[in-house]
Design a protein around this nucleic acid. Structure first.
Length: 890
RNA sequence: AGGCACGUACGUCAAUGGUAGACGGCUUCCCUUACAAGGAAGAGGUUGGGGGUUCGAAUCCCUCCGUGCCUACCA
């Protein structure tokens, strides 16, 4: 058999995925057990025109680990993939492409433009699916969904109609966030607040029938053209008698009142605020409270309107700002201008400064829906957030929830299912025919707006499973088991899914929410396209392999982590280690094959030990994966495979396995080795799917699949994940093996400290006072000899060794001597032993101090106190033996 | 402005209130017949500072310093 010395990830990544997919292993139907428990995840759908970044790779790795693990545990498993149409960003992308051809979407018209987007989707949407296949994501492609698919669009209309009929969706005229660049309204969550160095302008407004003036402070002088009041705090003595008086608004000559409102902070600025209800959200609210008129002076292109006055009509808002300031200065009404830092709202997508505008839009009332989500959390503590800290983030946000602006002035998205009759009546219906029937008219115009992308995303957990039909999938897979996502969409997406799930299904969309950490760059900065500091997961795959990358990402879990390529490299080395361990097993496999039942038959210590380690590791891994403790899971796997299996088990079994003479003993040793390896590969599989499949396929023997997958073509994917049988965990074997490991380590330490050449064979003498100890050491004599390159291993009751020996005292009272006639440097040996003595004394001193504290003895659990006493006794014994050894040295 | 995290070895990160660990890097030795992407042995920490609770604190509380993130209607 030809097996290269180095693992080539690309080779293994080439063909396994294709076969897994073709054989239907990813689909839940592969599970033939009618009573199988269910595990399901819906993917957070990536933007159809995007490509995968490190955050996706992280999320997908975790979802795939869970899915593969549960599948191997016999669950009926569904991980449902799909993509999001991502209204604004997709439309922007296509618009940008058009711009390069010197066209705008208006040149094409709506229909042609949308067709163009679909074409774009067909061309670039495939990229993500290719990347996901590369990742090894075991998603069921047969159930792949796209938010703009016809069936999902039908769900959107259904939900819209039902919410409208209940009065939870309404059309209204309100102040909204408007992006003058994208020409659409945005929800509060799509607006980002950025700090900005700006100016605060102090403007003087003359009071009617008086020489007095009121000074107001503003960051947006141009909005003064739309002022309809000046407000002061009712308790502000400075302005008490001004309330009720009238101001002649400069540049316009309009008369506006001075009003009192609690909202005004007397401490800020001058304590008097200009009120522009049409162009500021707070002023808008105050305007409603005081019945103020709304004078619109800025239009949807952020240019001044006719109501701003003839001098300003058509000016850009920033140009208008300069002119207002100049005019005030000319009139002697500009009090002062000071530097002022504040935050400014920008469009999350295009970074244009948002213009608050009054506009007719569709809104969703959130009170009832919010209460459904809060009620669920209150009653059942669902969904359960991991880490728990996000529960507070989630509930706090829900508690302060306001109505959601759901319409968007875009062409790409779900067009709002509302039609208008010629006389302006609104008909909301599932289709145009239904609308016509309802209206009793045929001249209908559909609302041109589309819905916020997150509207359809909110329905994802059930729209993908066939709702509103009572489908088998919906019954089986809803609620899903866990949602894995990044923390920045807890509000945008997670909370809305909960509300919609509760509203329409009456059940939570998922039991748990696992929030992943963030991968930062080496400087601790967020990776972003604009900063160009992102690391492309595909490049990492190419360099180190998918499995190594997955292992790196899996251990990130929920912690923010700086990207460190060295970590991936070390897991690449781990993959190579696995490869070579398997290579060794396979090169020595003649006559042997995987046979699970053989593991429990051997009486040899190292065999019982590895079986115990294997089962303990399996037990811990199951608990870790179920508990979302991915870091611990990866550590466990790494150490089990590298330390226990490679460094110790293979070395201990090597003599038997590589024996030149064929025979029963050799075959059995080889069989055990292959069988342990096979189980280790199963343990590794959810994390490292490619290398495990590649190697598993090469293992000889009739390897069994999980009973639920009986009849499927063999694959490690469908084997049973070892469950860590308690009866195979052998504490006696583990502690006996520990003694041997300690002995070997001590001899190696002596060799190294004494500078004994690796090629030089030395005799060693082990003295164990107890019979069991002698039995254990004697039985392992050959192995010890091999691992420390000893010429001879004597096991005795009492230590009788030449003076010129290096010595060590082992845990449990056994002693070790390495006769080193002519090689030993007594002074060096004394120093070495003294260092050991000091270590012991330091530890003893700490423990004694604890024990001499009466409060400790009194209050600490007895169990704990005894532990300390036992340890002190053990140290005392070891220490006295060590002292003896030092004395004997002269 | 509030809120929430975080600060542990040179680096990246672990550690149910119970003797601070891993991996990488570093030092020394070894190309020993699975693997130099390897083997063996080492060095390296008063857990950001200070205070408190506790028999016992990296862990819980307070405070200060530093770093992130989120939310917010101060014109």
């Amino acid at each position: 058999m030809e097996i290269p010395k180095q693992y080539d990830p690309k080779e293994a990544e080439q063909h396994h995925y294709e076969r897994w997919e073709r054989n239907g292993y990813f689909a839940p139907e592969i599970n033939k057990d009618p009573g199988a428990p269910v595990f399901s995840i819906v993917i957070p759908p990536p933007n159809v025109t995007g490509s995968l970044h490190m955050g996706h790779a992280l999320q997908h790795t975790l979802m795939d680990v869970m899915t593969r693990h549960k599948r191997m545990r016999g669950y009926r498993t569904l991980w449902l993939p799909g993509m999001d149409h991502a209204g604004i960003s997709t439309q922007l992308m296509v618009s940008r492409a058009l711009k390069k051809e010197g066209k705008t979407r208006h040149d094409l018209g709506r229909e042609k433009f949308v067709e163009r987007v679909w074409q774009w989707k067909r061309e670039s949407g495939g990229q993500i699916t290719v990347q996901m296949r590369r990742e090894g994501a075991s998603v069921d492609w047969s159930r792949e969904k796209f938010t703009m698919d016809e069936d999902l669009s039908r769900v959107v209309r259904e939900v819209f109609v039902r919410l409208y009929e209940e009065g939870l969706i309404y059309r209204g005229n309100r102040i909204v966030n408007w992006c003058p660049q994208d020409q659409t309204v945005l929800s509060d969550l799509e607006v980002e607040k950025l700090p900005q160095a700006g100016k605060l302008y102090y403007l003087q407004y003359p009071i009617k029938n008086s020489d007095e003036r009121v000074t107001v402070a503003t960051t947006r002088p141009e909005t003064m053209l739309g002022d309809t009041a000046v407000a002061v705090n009712p308790n502000d003595d400075r302005y008490r008698e001004l309330v009720g008086q009238t101001i002649i608004l400069p540049l316009t000559g309009r008369e506006i009142p001075i009003i009192a409102d609690e909202y005004v902070d007397p401490e800020f600025g001058t304590g008097a605020v200009k009120i522009t209800p049409a162009h500021d959200p707070n002023d808008y609210e105050m305007g409603l409270r005081h019945n103020l008129p709304q004078v619109i002076v800025i239009d949807s292109h952020a240019k001044m309107t006719a109501d701003a006055g003839a001098d300003f009509l058509g000016l850009d808002r920033y140009r208008a700002r300069e002119k207002v300031v100049d005019d005030f200065a000319a009139l002697g009404l500009l009090d002062k201008v000071v530097e002022y830092d504040f935050s400014i709202s920008k469009c999350e997508r295009c970074k244009t400064v948002i213009e608050p505008l009054i506009s007719t839009q569709w809104f969703m009332k959130m009170d009832q829906l919010r209460d459904l989500a809060l009620g669920l959390m209150g009653r059942e503590n669902k969904p359960e957030f991991v880490p728990e800290t996000y529960k507070k983030v989630y509930t706090d946000w829900l508690e302060n929830l306001r109505d959601w602006t759901i319409s968007r002035q875009l062409w790409w998205g779900h067009q709002i299912p509302a039609w208008y009759t010629p006389n302006g009546d609104v008909i909301v219906a599932r289709s145009e025919e239904e609308a016509r029937a309802k209206a009793g008219a045929s001249e209908l115009t559909q609302d041109p707006d589309v819905l916020d992308t997150w509207f359809s995303s909110a329905l994802w957990p059930f729209s993908t499973l066939g709702w509103p039909n009572e489908t088998e999938d919906l019954r089986t897979f809803y609620p899903t088991s866990v949602l894995v996502t990044a923390r920045d969409i807890i509000f945008l997406w997670v909370s809305r899914m909960v509300m919609m799930g509760m509203k329409f299904i009456g059940k939570e969309p998922f039991d748990d929410v696992f929030i992943t950490g963030t991968i930062l760059d080496a400087q601790g900065q967020r990776m972003s396209k604009t900063k160009m500091n992102g690391v492309d997961p595909i490049d990492v795959f190419d360099k180190f392999g998918v499995d190594a990358t997955r292992l790196t990402l899996a251990q990130v879990g929920s912690t923010d982590t700086r990207w460190n390529e060295k970590q991936v490299e070390s897991y690449r080395n781990f993959a190579n280690k696995i490869w070579n361990a398997a290579r060794f097993c396979l090169l020595n496999s003649e006559g042997a094959e995987v046979r699970p039942e053989i593991l429990e038959q051997s009486r040899a210590l190292h065999d019982r030990w590895i079986v115990s380690r294997l089962n303990k590791t399996a037990r811990d891994l199951n608990a870790a994966i179920d508990g979302y403790e991915f870091h611990g899971a990866v550590q466990n796997l790494y150490h089990f495979f590298w330390d226990d299996f490679c460094d110790w088990y293979i070395e201990l079994a090597k003599a038997d396995v590589t024996a030149e003479q064929p025979g029963d003993a050799r075959t059995k040793a080889r069989t055990r080795l292959l069988t342990v390896l096979e189980q280790a590969l199963r343990l590794l599989h959810p994390f490292m799917p490619y290398i495990t499949e590649e190697l598993w396929q090469r293992l000889p023997g009739n390897k069994r699949l999980h009973p639920a997958y009986r009849g499927a073509e063999p694959t490690v994917m469908l084997t049973a994940y070892p469950d860590g049988a308690a009866n195979l965990i052998d504490e006696a074997a583990e502690s006996e093996m520990q003694a041997i490991i300690e002995l070997i380590s001590r001899v190696r330490n002596i060799r190294s400290e004494m500078n004994i050449k690796p090629s030089e064979r030395i005799p060693i003498i082990v003295a164990a006072p107890d019979e069991n100890g002698r039995r254990v050491f004697s039985a392992a004599r050959e192995q010890i000899s091999r691992l420390v390159r000893a010429s001879e291993v004597s096991v005795t009751e009492r230590l009788e060794a030449p003076k010129a020996s290096a010595r060590a005292v082992l845990t449990g009272g056994a002693e070790l001597a390495v006769p080193l006639e002519g090689l030993i440097d007594f002074e060096q040996e004394r120093r070495r032993l003294q260092r050991e003595q000091e270590k012991l004394q330091a530890e003893a001193a700490k423990l004694e101090a604890q024990l001499s504290n009466p409060n400790f003895v009194e209050r600490a659990p007895a169990e704990r106190v005894n532990e300390v006493r036992d340890r002190i006794a053990a140290i005392a014994q070891q220490s006295s033996q060590l002292r003896q050894t030092v004395e004997n040295l002269q």
